[in-house]
Design a protein around this nucleic acid. Sequence first.
RNA 1: UCCUCGAUAGCUCAAUCGGUAGAGCGAGCGGCUGUUAACCGCUAGGUUGUAGGUUCGAGUCCUACUCGAGGAGCCA
Length: 501
Amino acid sequence: MSQSVSINKLNEHVDQQVTLQGWMARNRPSGKVQFLVLRDGTGLCQCVIEKGVLPDDLFDQVKRLGQESSMAVTGTVRAEERSVGGHELAVTDVRIIGPAVDYPITPKSHGTEFLMRHRHLHLRSQRQWAIGKIRHTVVDAIRRFFNDNGFTLIDTPIFTTIAGEEVGSLFEVDYFGDPIHLTQTGQLYLETAAMSYGKVYCFGPTFRAEKSKTRRHLTEFWMVEPEVAFIDLPGLLELAETFVSSIVSRVLADNRSELEQLEADIPALEKIQAPFYRLTYTECVDILTSDRTRTFLAQQMTEFQTQKAIIESRISELETQQQGSVKQWQKDKIAAELIDLRSEQSELDTKIENNPKHAELAANFQWGKDLGGSDETIISMMHDKPVFVTHYPRKAKAFYMKTDRSNEQVVENFDCLAPAGFGEIIGGSVREDDYDTLINRVKEEGLTPENYSWYLDLRKYGTVPHGGFGLGVERTVAWITGEKHIRQCIPFPRMMDKVYI
RNA sequence: UCCUCGAUAGCUCAAUCGGUAGAGCGAGCGGCUGUUAACCGCUAGGUUGUAGGUUCGAGUCCUACUCGAGGAGCCA
């Protein structure tokens, strides 16, 4: 028996006899030769099976195997320019492990619903695999960053007795007859630990029952939250920009081929380096209501319409070609392109429809409101690097955020908006550290102070300025990979009213 | 919760004015030694989401419901 190796290590075994173990991604049998592409979790390798080398009955058995059949394939590695991955295997033996019949996900395109219902199998497909590899790097980079910078990991509870954000977005579960909630944030617990270790972070799933049906929302998502004692707002911003930059540069270093495969915007990612842009909320309001935004949106509208015209002329061009007497496979290709173009067209229609609404929302923006999704998108579209927006109105924000002592209308908080219209990936703040101010804020919000007694205690026994933020893992992965919907960025997504498997 | 669009073969989609439901892929069989979503020939595959209604006749029109997609509010 020859040495068992993984496909990503084939370059170390050229001209040697090896055994690969994996699944059949596809097979193209012809009379006397089969080109079988094997997938082993580390990459793809074309295996060339020749009749005569393999016994006839085995050759025929392999020929009849369905997509995703598992097998061990033995042969000689050779360098081959024409092949995926640059290597191929001249096969001398095949051992069939688990045949597959009628694998549902075919090489043709599928709709979202179908893929989500087959999520357990969809994870094997190339695109999902690449996103998963990048998610892995993102998670590792997050842990690395904090572990290497003096932070201590604190595991905060998932069953929680207090709310950090909107009470309405808590999932309630039955805890031996009493109600308890799934955590929306580890922050409040994390603050207690920051008073013990100085610099801490938590990293885990978090749950929000928001009725949000958008490409940026999940009801269960992963969030990392650092919390630091003796830090101010500029210090937090510096931490956040160093942190985000370190994640992006790790992905660029470790997952370049996955980024290429996903057609991510690599030059744009290479620009993600500190310092990021800094704007106050008030400056954002000024921008939104200015001529700059008006002309920016008008330009966008023109651009959308130009794109739409291009797509429409391409569609009618293809439709004409389709009428003509071309070969069937060409018709097929045209049909596939038409489907893509039509979905692009309807996306543009939505953008064209929304543009005036967004323009109106922006132009009429009143100081005091929270920034809406469209407002954030506008600000983020105007920049090629992430933007920090700081100092939001106190009334629009959570009770625990520290009131700015030089302007009591605002709090010392920040959001970090990823560029090119992606939107918010981080929300954070300096925490209110004065006992009396905090208890008044708790009461103002209609919350019960008794429930927060332990949280208030932190302000009684050696209070210090401190703060932190939360970064959404799926949003970060979606932004980096250029994936439109964050449901593709977690293995098993849970959405507002839809849990597939 | 609200607005818009959709549901036709296992999958992705066609079906003109309301007039016999059709392709490709996938599956099965046969052919082909260099294929990259190969190609060529043949075969099987359908209660058009559900329930009503209009009509000589409904995939197509009307009503309700179910499910899905996109968007809005809110957020990481």
